[in-house]
């Protein structure tokens, strides 16, 4: 037997009883034989009671089964800030033709980017200086070797006038050993 759930002063006792029986059905319980007979009597006698019963069954079914109603319930369940506050400061283009604003970096991203740029510039500067140093060093060695070769050639010019001149090292043959440069660079920056 369904227990009375509440008293509604706007309804007659019979209407309240009809709602109680419908609520029992909607709670998933089976009505007893007496309750079914009671419900049958109410619905058979009164066209309005029948319409009320049908509409209440329909409402229960809409809530339980209809996808659009369930979607509405799910949307209502979302906290308001998810739908509004978080997006309050976002700039939304007014129409499809309006280009969206370029994505902006956050403050922390900007700091990190600035620091990375500085470090990269510093490393590039060190590599450049090292490269220049190696070039000058090699140039000096080649010049010294050339001078020594010329001097030696001049000294032996008379003694060995018929012998072919030995080729000296020339700037055109200068080769840069990039492996040495990078080894030097990594040592210099302490990696």
């Amino acid at each position: 037997m369904a227990k009375p759930t509440h008293i509604d002063m706007a309804k007659t006792p019979q209407e309240s009883r009809l709602d109680e029986l419908i609520d029992t059905l909607h709670s998933g319980q089976q009505l007893t034989e007496d309750e079914m007979a009671e419900l049958e009597a109410m619905l058979s006698a009164d066209h309005e009671a029948r319409a009320h019963y049908i509409l209440r069954q329909e409402l229960h079914t809409m809530l339980e089964v209809d996808k659009s109603v369930r979607l509405q319930l799910a949307i209502d369940e979302l906290p308001d800030h998810i739908l509004t506050d978080d997006f309050a400061d976002e700039q939304v283009p007014e129409s499809d033709d309006t280009p969206a604003p370029a994505p902006k970096l956050s403050r922390s991203s900007k700091e990190a980017f600035r620091m990375a740029t500085s470090i990269a510039a510093m490393i590039a500067g060190v590599i450049g200086m090292l490269w220049m140093y190696v070039q000058v060093e090699k140039f000096t060695q080649i010049e010294a070797a050339n001078e020594a070769a010329k001097k030696k050639a001049a000294e032996s010019e008379v003694a060995a006038e018929d012998e072919p001149e030995k080729p000296g090292t020339d700037l055109k043959e200068m080769k840069f050993d990039m492996v040495d440069i990078f080894k030097g660079t990594t040592k210099l920056i302490g990696l």
Binding site: L25, G28, Q30, L31, M36, L39, Y53, I54, Q57, E58, H60, T61, M62, V65, D66
Partner: peptide, 14 residues
């Protein structure tokens, strides 16, 4: 939804 609602009115058993 409307079919099951209609059937429910005639069969008082979910």
């Amino acid at each position: 939804p409307r079919l099951v609602g209609y059937i429910r009115t005639m069969i008082a058993d979910e």
